[in-house]
Design a binder for these strands. Structure first.
Lengths: 208, 208
DNA sequence: GTCTATAGCGGGATAGAC
DNA sequence: GTCTATCCCGCTATAGAC
């Protein structure tokens, strides 16, 4: 492949990234339906016609962002599974990663995109399926084994693991939403959130 | 006032309620912008023209629902303040009320309307002001005195009260969102949420 | 009071100039 | 590759029949 077209490809990819980045901002703040292609174009600093030179439709752009969001959220859980430590330490590490990511707005915005995609009936079915496609990849499902292991070990209270996971993710989603309403809102420490899990009485370290 | 027009007024109000109820359902699930007047009409079982006989615009309908949602959320906090008991007992009562209301879908939907109104830039400023108008009436602000009193008493851990309140409402909002993604999802017990507040003996959590 | 028909406009997507 | 002009559909809101 000649040098020139490689370079062109890179420029093309950079432009696509630029548009996606702009789209992320406006989609997260206005919602998919309320966002006009011209909003994205204005945010990216180019004409609305050019957006269609790089993407086929508004839905395609939104869809790519949903994919990106879903991947990065699954990735964190998988990384948590790989680090060594007790189940509770894995949960703490994961929680810290997520809470830290809220400082950087890009991750928060990706979270909001995912919430929109899963909660709004206005999102086309094909896009929603990106999230529900493989049930076993849902954050709640991926987290269950860690919670169960922690219960086995006595580190985590013996409530219904699904309820615990739901509650945990409710917190995460709620915090992401809060962040957009009130960008300077105080982000709690991971330990505060983990209090819902921790079995104070039978402390983990003496219980084996 | 003659009897007949009183009766007419009642019928008129009932129709308005019918439309509002239908609007609540579709607004919550699709978002304000994505909801068409014909969606509301279809849900209410009448023609789209008739909706305009009772309301002036889509925005007016949405706005009325936001008002209703804001009122009922403030009401719960005020009621919590009035019951007798320790601060923690007030928080428990309030949490139980809210979690119970999630069983009934109308309250959950009102919650979602409020989240939309406060998070989306696509919502007209006049509507957003219904929520931000009096800062001192925000749920976080209303809850701070209860939390502070609980800390005074030693019932509640000595973290930053604003952070605690933000975390608490993040849970609540997150659960409301969860409920629409997954209607049969397990709703946690109030005591599980309250674990973030409770100062158990041997708890080593400190902040600031 | 309730319906159907339609005016009017805004925005997604495309064509074509440069 | 980038822009402007425009097609065309769909939705809000209104008009007017019954």
């Amino acid at each position: 492949m000649p040098r020139k077209s490689e370079l062109n490809q890179e420029l093309r990819d950079a432009r696509k990234e630029q548009i996606l980045k702009a789209a992320l901002i406006v989609f997260a703040r206005r919602g998919m339906v309320a966002t006009k292609i011209s909003d994205i174009a204005k945010e990216a600093g180019l004409s609305h016609g050019l957006v269609y030179h790089y993407f086929n439709s508004k839905e395609e752009i939104f869809s790519l962002l949903v994919k990106k969001a879903a991947n990065s959220s699954i990735e964190i859980i998988q990384q948590a599974n790989e680090i060594k430590g007790t189940p509770l330490e894995k949960l703490r590490w994961m929680t810290e990663q997520i809470l830290n990511s809220f400082v950087d707005s890009e991750h928060t915005l990706l979270f909001l995109i995912m919430i929109q995609a899963s909660t709004s009936d206005a999102i086309p079915a094909e896009v929603k399926e990106l999230l529900t496609g493989d049930q076993s990849l849902s954050p709640v499902m991926c987290t269950l084994p860690i919670i169960a292991a922690g219960q086995e070990k006595g580190e985590i209270i013996s409530a219904n693991p699904v309820t615990l996971a739901v509650t945990y993710y409710a917190f995460i989603q709620g915090l992401a939403i809060n962040k957009i309403q009130w960008p300077e809102c105080p982000i709690p420490d991971a330990n505060l959130l983990l209090r819902i899990f921790i079995n104070e009485k039978g402390s983990s370290y003496h219980n084996e």
